[in-house]
């Protein structure tokens, strides 16, 4: 967990965090109701440009973070491709039944998985969690106890990760072996979760008592003030423009010969 991220600030960093968050959530829900893979494909290209060009992070980091996209695509697509409902059979062997409809539905799900991952990263790479919570307190009137608890927990996370690693090494050194099957699964969860839980709950409890004593659970003045700017307006227009252009292009040049992957 000891690596430093250097990046340049882009205009995406300067957006109002809660506003950006709400926009991304709205976009997510909207995408759930898009059943046209062509539309999704062009949206992916549009947001892909934004992701590659304007997060302000190095190309290397962006490529590392993008590497699971292929796995996401394959894992979201396969079960639908092989076992989805459909009538126009392409290939059938045993239980595997690939139809035209299920194939394109699988591709659609894969594209959607990548698009969700990409938007999630676009948000995560350009938003500082601290600012997100501060602006949630200021604009959404989130109770300070929730916001400060989340911020404190994020800072406890590295300790938990290193404790986890220590524990794993300790178990390895002692030559702990696990049972097979479901018993082994429980054993594993037990060996790891109980010491980690006991330690972390105690630490969290101590931290929280100290925070309560310092009135982090009540209204305080804010160190960071978050405000809207014209950039938020541009961002909204940009998203609308990407959506509209994708829709327009998808009606002219369709990549997949299908415009609704749902059957019923």
């Amino acid at each position: 967990m000891h690596f430093e991220l250097t990046y340049r600030q882009t205009w995406l960093h300067a957006l109002h965090p809660v506003f950006k968050f709400v926009m991304v959530i709205v976009l997510f829900v909207a995408i759930l109701f898009i059943h046209n893979p062509n539309f999704l494909f062009y949206m992916l290209i549009g947001f892909g440009f934004l992701y590659i060009g304007w997060t302000g992070h190095s190309f290397k980091l962006i490529s590392i973070l993008s590497s699971p996209f292929l796995i996401i695509f394959v894992s979201s697509a396969t079960s639908m491709m092989f076992f989805g409902d459909g009538t126009n059979t392409w290939y059938k062997i045993g239980l595997i039944h690939i139809t035209e409809e299920s194939f394109y539905r699988g591709v659609h799900l894969g594209l959607r998985g990548i698009l969700f991952g990409l938007l999630g990263l676009l948000f995560a790479l350009t938003t500082r969690p601290v600012l997100l919570f501060y602006s949630a307190m200021q604009t959404l009137k989130l109770k300070p106890k929730y916001a400060y608890a989340f911020m404190a927990a994020i800072n406890l996370l590295p300790i938990m990760v290193s404790e986890f690693q220590t524990l794993r090494n300790a178990l390895k050194v002692r030559g702990v072996t696990y049972n097979s099957g479901i018993k082994g699964v429980y054993q594993r969860i037990q060996y790891f979760s109980i010491p980690l839980l006991a330690q972390s709950i105690r630490r969290a409890h101590r931290t929280a008592i100290a925070m309560e004593a310092k009135q982090f659970s009540n209204d305080r003045t804010y160190y960071y003030q978050v405000s809207y700017s014209l950039k938020d307006l541009y961002f909204t227009f940009l998203i609308l423009a990407i959506m509209a252009t994708s829709f327009w292009v998808s009606t002219i040049y369709s990549v997949f010969p299908i415009d609704n992957v749902r059957m019923r």
Partner: peptide, 9 residues
Amino acid sequence: GGQWGGISL
């Protein structure tokens, strides 16, 4: 790092 789609989670 958003491997599972971050906010969709």
